[in-house]
Amino acid sequence: MSDLRSLLAIDTIYLEPAVEGYGRGREILARFPAARRIPVESHWRIPELHGNAGLAEDWLRTKRSALVLGVKKGLAMRPNGRSADFIAPSTSNGCAMACAYCYVPRRKGYANPISLFVNCDDVCTAIARHALKLGPKREPNQIDPTDWVYDVGENGDLSVDALLSDNVRDLVAMFRRTPHAKGSFATKAVNRDLLAFEPGGKTRVRFSLMPEKVARVVDVRTSPMAERIAAIDDFVRAGYEVHVNFSPVILYPGWEGDYRALFEAVDAALSEPAKRQLKAEIIMLTHNAALHEVNLQWHPKAEDWLWTPDIQETKTSEGGGVNLRYRAGWKGRWLARFKALLAEVMPYCEVRYAF
């Protein structure tokens, strides 16, 4: 079993001035008494981290050794409609892991170590008020039949965040006691500390899965696939709703056989209670031209899987970035084949959404 704590050896903390005025901020600082503290005006504007092209070649050291602490300013809920009803304000940004396809570095610069927000109480209060104002969910949808679902991990991985503070424990507790609300986050890490958080069926964990041969290259510093699969039953027994997240689906010669083997491994590992509650999301790879250039500096082998322009086409995003997606004429066929394979091996696994 992998040890998540080996991901972190914090020796430098960048912190906004207000951080030490929060109990959570003081708690986190006390965990790292020997760390160098560097005051910054904003967690978003740290010149030696963000936009520093020289850090691309030192990508992993930065993720291991640096931590950013700030105060979350915006507390609005964003409608989603895919994985969740709403995207909640994040209690973190960035990650200690280093998946080569991650979109966060596109927005945040060349290094995106974990940023933790110390006003988790404000986030919890905002979510609870929002859910109570909405009242009961009147009609079931593909997201959830009864609860309003809030994604609380859009820009990070809460399984790793839980190593650093009690923010995740507080979120799980808030959802447990809030009517009509359910939390949700995707993860590529197995943190068994979460098994003691008593979610009461009100937090959904989505374990991200892909064939191990691909994950060994592109899912850098994450828990092994077998460990993620083995954790599903344990998390269900602990009171979590557990779904799987086939994301991103990366196409290559032989992908069908590898995914069939993955589905068979999941099917063989799950208990009947886990199977009855299991659902899936399917997200085909979207890559990014700028991220491709960064990856070539620190992890070029990943680009052998991610950058395949012979079967991809470019599309300019709303923010002006150049993204690569699988060609429209073929993507639909490949997605249909993927869903057919899943239905053949795991007929009980409903696909909540796919794109």
Rank of each mutant, 00 (worst) to 15 (best):
R64P: 01
R337Y: 05
D122F: 05
G329S: 10
W148C: 07
P179I: 12
L194K: 02
D267S: 14
L75Q: 07
G183D: 09
E256V: 09
E313C: 13
A226D: 11
R61Y: 05
S317D: 14
Y103W: 15
K188H: 05
Q142D: 06
E139H: 13
M1G: 10
L55H: 06
T12S: 06
E313S: 15
V40E: 02
H299T: 08
E20A: 08
D304W: 04
G319S: 08
R352N: 08
A328F: 00
N295Y: 03
E256Q: 15
D3A: 10
A268W: 00
S247W: 01
A66K: 13
K213P: 00
G200H: 10
R192I: 05
G109D: 13
Y22T: 06
W59H: 14
K331M: 14
A196Y: 13
E264R: 11
L341D: 05
E313W: 09
D304A: 12
P248Q: 08
A265H: 08
G257I: 06
K133T: 12
F175R: 02
H180F: 15
C349A: 13
L335T: 10
D122M: 08
P140N: 07
Q312V: 06
F86M: 09
R276G: 00
G321L: 13
G200P: 09
G135D: 03
K279M: 12
L335I: 08
P47F: 04
G94C: 07
W59Y: 15
V68P: 01
V249K: 01
L341A: 06
D258S: 09
R26F: 13
G183I: 04
P39W: 06
Y110W: 09
E293Q: 12
E41A: 15
W307S: 02
S208W: 00
L194C: 01
V19W: 04
P248R: 07
R276M: 03
M174V: 03
R228D: 03
V118W: 01
E41N: 14
K213F: 02
I46G: 00
C102R: 02
W330K: 14
V172W: 03
A238E: 06
C120D: 05
R129H: 06
F235H: 07
I46Y: 02
V160W: 01
P136T: 13
K213S: 11
N52Q: 08
K63Q: 04
G254C: 09
R78V: 15
I38Q: 11
V168L: 00
C99H: 07
R228T: 03
R221S: 11
T146V: 05
A88I: 07
S83I: 10
R129A: 11
C124H: 00
P253S: 13
V104A: 12
R37W: 10
N295I: 04
Q312E: 11
R260V: 11
R327M: 09
I232L: 07
D310M: 02
G329A: 12
R337S: 12
E350H: 11
R107E: 12
C120F: 03
S6H: 12
A215T: 06
